[in-house]
Design a binder for these strands. Sequence first.
DNA 1: ACACGCACTTGATTTTTGTCAATTATGGAA
DNA 2: TTCCATAATTGACAAAAATCAAGTGCGTGT
Lengths: 232, 232
Amino acid sequence: MRPDDLPEMRELEPFKSMREENFAELMHAAFLQNFPAQVQLITEGDHADFLFVVIEGCVELYAQANGREAVLAMVRPIGSFILAAVMKDAVNLMSARTTGKSRILMIPAQNIRAAFEKDDAFARAIVIELAGYFRAVVKEYKNLRLRTAVERLANWLLKYHKDQGAEGMVELPYDKRTLASILGMTPENLSRAFGTLKPYGVSVNGGRVKLDDLESLEVLAKPNVLIDERTT
Amino acid sequence: MRPDDLPEMRELEPFKSMREENFAELMHAAFLQNFPAQVQLITEGDHADFLFVVIEGCVELYAQANGREAVLAMVRPIGSFILAAVMKDAVNLMSARTTGKSRILMIPAQNIRAAFEKDDAFARAIVIELAGYFRAVVKEYKNLRLRTAVERLANWLLKYHKDQGAEGMVELPYDKRTLASILGMTPENLSRAFGTLKPYGVSVNGGRVKLDDLESLEVLAKPNVLIDERTT
DNA sequence: ACACGCACTTGATTTTTGTCAATTATGGAA
DNA sequence: TTCCATAATTGACAAAAATCAAGTGCGTGT
């Protein structure tokens, strides 16, 4: 790949802080691939051979055990995944599949690690990146431990409502079965959770959710910066 | 503090990789404190002013919301906590309290960040440290999402059984209410979970648990390296 | 338009987990 | 030792969530 094919990559942490020559070298080793929907990119337990960067489309990170499956996160442009496994030269803890047509940059793990050894600024940027990832999972964990399913949905709605301009409307970014799994519940339970939120001004119409009474929804949800805030 | 007061600190990642002068400087800025049991060391939401290193004793990391409380982790010698918050110069996502008499090293956050800027090897060691933390939380998250309470207990027993020499006996390292919270259940439920494990050769006597039928316990638990292994 | 498949919903039921209350250990301190 | 506070257990019950089984609705392709 040519280093200037993806100017937005250069703007992305942790690549922003890299020395030009190291960035160029990394990009030369990388592959930019187009994938259709529902392609398995990595499987949990496999060795992490690439760092993945989602340039376009959407990727679902999930895990399986005991006949159960859980969606752990969705990665949208421009976001990377399995950085921790790459840095530790270890196996993936999650699987990944595209949920729609996607354009994905694959950077060989050994090149990432080589750049990490060579480029001090890159190494430091990765610290901040990983610290952010760590804190994001801790928040997800707290969300699951400290809230019921209805509370998780209510807070999810408030968060995405703010993201989407806070105009009394939330557009669901994925289908409901995926949303249910992200929120740690079954699709049936998500339907019912929407039902219990009706008295709080929440009305669903396909992928559109109308929020008519934010005050009472917030009373129910009790949003918490130490769980819901993305940047904190 | 004198740099040679704690030789074991020097052996600990990420301090092992530090240049001698930087380590000495860090240690000079640090405080070694003795705390009795049940002392609140940090509170979630407060700014992270110190990196904590448990030298002796035990510290409980926990979080609260919606009138609920969850123990997220126990830190034993020699382990550190809130590294991510220190690196990001952010607020703590968890609270911490001593569970018994403890000796704790407190290193001012700005000194950690200064050493991080100055010492390239230290910066790189922190990457590995944080990547390990990240993967540990992901495993905890998967444990919670993909297993029932009884399965979590069964796997916890198998893990600690191996830790303690695999001699058919597990000594509980903390009281049962704490263990219950670590496993994401109520104390009442933990009692009942021990009850359901009785047919699988599990018998409890105070803080001692006897495992008489590891084979059938493993059939029930279905241990998974991508959840239960500490190092992977 | 029609039929088909699929996502979603709804209802009935079970399982799992939490809550409340009452007992029963258990481990110091006097 | 006895007493006391606390931890742990047990039972009855309630709530939350999962499961199973129909249904409904909706968009696509023919």
